[in-house]
Design a protein around this nucleic acid. Structure first.
Lengths: 226, 226
DNA sequence: GTTAACATACCATACGGTCGGTATGTGTCA
DNA sequence: TGACACATACCGACCGTATGGTATGTTAAC
């Protein structure tokens, strides 16, 4: 059906369509419960196409994790939370941004690589490692601002920028787990309020009004963070 | 093979053995990737026994979640962190306890119901709800101490005891996710250090030495928290 | 003798993966 | 410029096995 040629790929190529389908379906059903036929149906391709592009289902798993890393990196790089001049304000804007994009259905805001890592960590090390690279690659992008804020504010701390960045990610991931268990996105947002309060405490900024304007229009996007 | 009679169940009955096997294997491989044959082999029973005790694989899922809730409730009720007279000390002792039991292999300290909830939340609502009851039942046990500590310390807060208890659970769950993604338990403990610091900030107790003695011998247990 | 607690054999299907084939683009050399 | 070789992208039938589940039989306690 409507096989798009290389010069008229109106639907995008099969590989990309499979990756997008995998991102959406695995976020909802998990990796093991997603069959390659599920993916082929959703992407409207045949099994032949699937195994032409991916050597195995596991290889597809690695590829979606990398696909996720690429798309979310671009997404966060373009996000509005980098705007403030003050480093701490940028950090708080990040948290506010993450909170703001937690809306709608679970499958639209939860984290693909967190879900996959938890599921396949023991049985598919390659996928796990790809997920790890996505997650920790993202946390690393927060470290510079944390370090700058600490220096700017003259904070002598017994914690590293690295560990705080990872903690922020842990709160997000944990919020997603609770949101799924309780079937309510509020549970994820709730923890981000505590995270924001914690960060303000760390930087002696309990009073500051650092509410950043995350333009609602720019927040209506589909993918989410690693 | 060594069929244990009702009056000589030296290995425990088949149902319990299946639940224990399910707890251990699902924590490692996830629910979907665990076949009922895996479970039968590990529990040393036949398929007939499995479907005698559980109507379906999904019913087994609900049953392990409930089994987990029961065993962890007993485990935490008997844990040493309840000892301190001061409510805040008990809360900090809880965090220290949770940190202390994060040792060894991932499958020995991670949370069954967190893993399952994340995986099956959309495809198996019954299992998800059973997981939710386990998780939020556990968080509820922390609320009284939080409320007491707040009153004792005269803290007027814009957060509820309920939400803090849930946040503590979120940090734990998120720590597990990062530990799996990075294949390193340190990542889970690291976040608990931030959680401890946050709680001290909340209760203006940054200076207090509330290091509780969690007797190492009493910590050598196999199961973990919901 | 009724019932709970298993065991054994079996079934239908779903699954990951293979394979031979076709259509289309692409580089190259006379 | 055209023809040929080759590569890429995809199709769809097929295969062996694993899986969830069932039907029936057997043992032992009450």
């Amino acid at each position: 059906m409507s096989r798009p040629t290389k010069h008229a790929p109106e639907r995008g190529n099969a590989r990309t369509r499979l990756l997008e389908a995998a991102r959406d379906i695995i976020r909802e059903k998990g990796f093991a419960a997603t069959s390659v036929e599920d993916l082929c149906k959703a992407a409207d391709v045949t099994k032949g196409a699937f195994f032409h592009h991916f050597a195995s289902k596991e290889a597809l798993g690695v590829a979606v994790a990398e696909f996720w890393a690429e798309t979310t990196t671009a997404y966060f790089a373009a996000a509005p939370y980098h705007a403030p001049d003050d480093a701490l304000a940028r950090i708080l804007a990040y948290v506010a941004f993450r909170k703001a994009i937690i809306t709608g259905a679970l499958k639209d805001f939860t984290c693909l690589v967190g879900t996959m890592a938890q599921e396949v960590h023991a049985s598919a090390p390659d996928i796990r490692d790809a997920c790890g690279r996505s997650i920790f690659g993202h946390t690393a992008t927060l470290e510079a601002d944390i370090e700058t804020a600490r220096r700017e504010r003259g904070i002598t701390a017994d914690w590293s920028a690295e560990s705080l960045a990872r903690h922020m990610q842990a709160v997000l991931q944990g919020g997603f787990v609770l949101a799924k268990a309780g079937n309510d996105p509020v549970l994820a947002r709730e923890s981000l309020d505590h995270l924001e309060r914690y960060i303000r405490h760390l930087f002696n900024a309990m009073e500051d009004d650092a509410h950043d304007e995350n333009d609602p229009d720019r927040l209506r996007l589909r993918t989410d963070a690693p």
